[in-house]
């Protein structure tokens, strides 16, 4: 009797789960497999084209140094943006979690993470308005400083970094804040009453306990930044060629989909590899 009950339960669970998971299967996991398949083809297998299996797309990556150079450029961009976001965001999360009290904390926290849920394209565009030559930043600096600086950051790597930090900063603030909020204040009190100095408390108590939040935030920033293409296009102009923009070109301009698939898969491998490298640190931090 109980066996048949478990059976109906299993059917109910299956009925409730299958819409969501079949959808994910059809829209995410099958496409990723299709992309893996495409990366080994010489041409697209529709529209009556001739195609066969080949390793040429991966060979192209190895034989054309530009791809590796651009991939490294994108990884470097990811590291710089991640490092800056952590350095700027962690103190902000600390102030929110441990200094500000009461109702104003909730409101301030909401204000900090609200931009994260607004359109990223529009926020990048807003930086284009601020940074362009004769733009608001240039005019303001000219008005304040007595000499002529002609500040024009638009279409420079600096502009791309500023825009990306602005886009992804709320991630690390959010994850660090959650980790910091979980630290019991009495632990800090105990350390202080035992004579620990501020720097010791920060280094030996707060940073180790908040590490899972910081690392989670860093990973959440690094992964999308390595694959970014819209931000470099808008803020970098002609100097905004990165690995992501090359992949974009394969799909919307050059129409070499198999090469684009191979380049995407190499990016996925790099991202997963870096996550695997970081995972001992993540595991140690979360234990």
């Amino acid at each position: 009797m109980s066996g048949s009950l478990a059976r109906t339960d299993r059917l109910r669970a299956l009925a409730l789960l299958s819409p969501a998971y079949l959808w994910l299967m059809a829209a995410v996991f099958l496409p990723l497999s299709a992309m893996a398949f495409f990366s080994f083809l010489s041409d697209v297998p529709f529209g009556g084209r001739d195609w066969q299996f080949t390793l040429d797309n991966y060979r192209a990556f190895l034989e054309t140094p530009t791809y590796a150079t651009l991939l490294w450029k994108s990884v470097k961009l990811g590291l710089i943006v991640t490092a800056l976001s952590v350095l700027i965001g962690f103190p902000c999360a600390y102030v929110l979690a441990k200094v500000v009290r009461g109702r104003s904390r909730e409101a301030l926290f909401l204000l900090v993470i609200l931009p994260f849920w607004s359109n990223s394209l529009v926020r990048i565009f807003s930086w284009a308005i601020v940074l362009r030559g004769n733009g608001i930043l240039g005019s303001t600096v000219d008005a304040i400083l007595p000499w002529d600086v002609r500040l024009n950051l638009m279409f420079s790597p600096t502009a791309i970094v500023i825009g990306l930090v602005h886009s992804y900063l709320p991630y690390v603030i959010l994850t660090s804040y959650l980790a910091l909020q979980a630290i019991d204040d009495s632990l800090i009190e105990a350390a202080r009453s035992l004579g620990a100095r501020r720097r010791t408390i920060l280094r030996r108590l707060i940073l180790p306990l908040a590490a899972p939040g910081i690392i989670a935030g860093a990973v959440l920033i690094f992964v999308p930044v390595v694959g970014s293409f819209m931000e470099p296009r808008i803020l970098g102009g002609r100097r905004g060629t990165y690995y992501g923009t090359v992949i974009e070109d394969q799909f919307v301009a050059v129409f070499n989909w198999p090469l684009g698939a191979a380049l995407s898969f190499i990016l996925l491998a790099v991202v997963l590899g870096i996550l695997a490298l970081a995972s001992p640190a993540i595991r140690r931090a979360t234990l």
Partner: peptide
């Protein structure tokens, strides 16, 4: 495993997910 399967759509760069969907839907 079911819980872990929720992460790829969030964690994989949208550039990769988007181009993979394009390939699949054309395929």
């Amino acid at each position: 495993i079911l819980q872990v399967l929720l992460f790829p759509p969030i964690a994989i760069p949208w550039l990769i997910t988007g181009t993979a969907m394009l390939i699949f839907f054309f395929g």
